[in-house]
Design a protein around this nucleic acid. Structure first.
Lengths: 100, 100
DNA sequence: TTGTAATATTACCGCTCAGTAATAAATTAA
DNA sequence: TTAATTTATTACTGAGCGGTAATATTACAA
């Protein structure tokens, strides 16, 4: 496990905190199929526009997604596909508590 | 990815939230070497006793650790080794942001 | 320029959580 | 029983976060 220093623990905790919100998980799940505009996300995830923007900001600050302007719209894309490994593991773990 | 329903997302978010704290990550890292008493943990992790107890309660409620009384002391052990897969993945991800 | 659409930001509210000190509960010994 | 040790709980505080409405910003078209 190598030496797990405090800074690394803090970064891990921050990453987990970024994923510790159902709305953000929904957004990531949506982006898993490919880049989407803010409007697409806020409609398909049933989130208010401002709320969507704020969550995207959190994901962006965490380095998980990145924006790209296309005219007046902004398309967000996954930047770190590795997080889906985390999500799938957590999903299996969460499902396991159900007995499957 | 199978269907990701709301309940599953909520459970995932809860699991991530449980891991989104440096103190709890330190405790889990300590328990990775084997079961430890509350006193051991609170000393080796440099946490106050009450604080340690509270974090252990959170980990226990999440089903990640389990207690076992031995006289006047209580030894906690990892119940879900799968979480270390999560931690290692997150650790690599966190480390990757550093350039290594 | 003016207007319109898409996105981002701000300010506010309510709630939850981490840390702490004090106290309670459980177990064992004398 | 009383005392000592270990662990758990409670009450409190301060900080941070999610949701929302209103507003600002950005880009483009007429």
């Amino acid at each position: 496990m190598a030496k797990t220093n405090q800074r690394q623990l803090n970064r891990m905790a921050t990453l987990f905190a970024t994923l510790a919100d159902p709305a953000r998980l929904r957004i990531l799940n949506c982006l898993r199929a490919g880049p989407h505009s803010v409007g697409d996300i806020h409609r398909s995830c049933r989130l208010k526009q401002a709320n969507t923007s704020k969550h995207l900001r959190v994901l962006r600050d965490a380095g998980l997604v990145s924006p790209r302007r296309e005219g007046t719209t902004v398309r967000y894309a996954i930047v770190e596909p590795l997080i889906f490994g985390l999500c799938d593991l957590a999903c299996g773990k969460a499902a396991a508590k159900n007995g499957k």
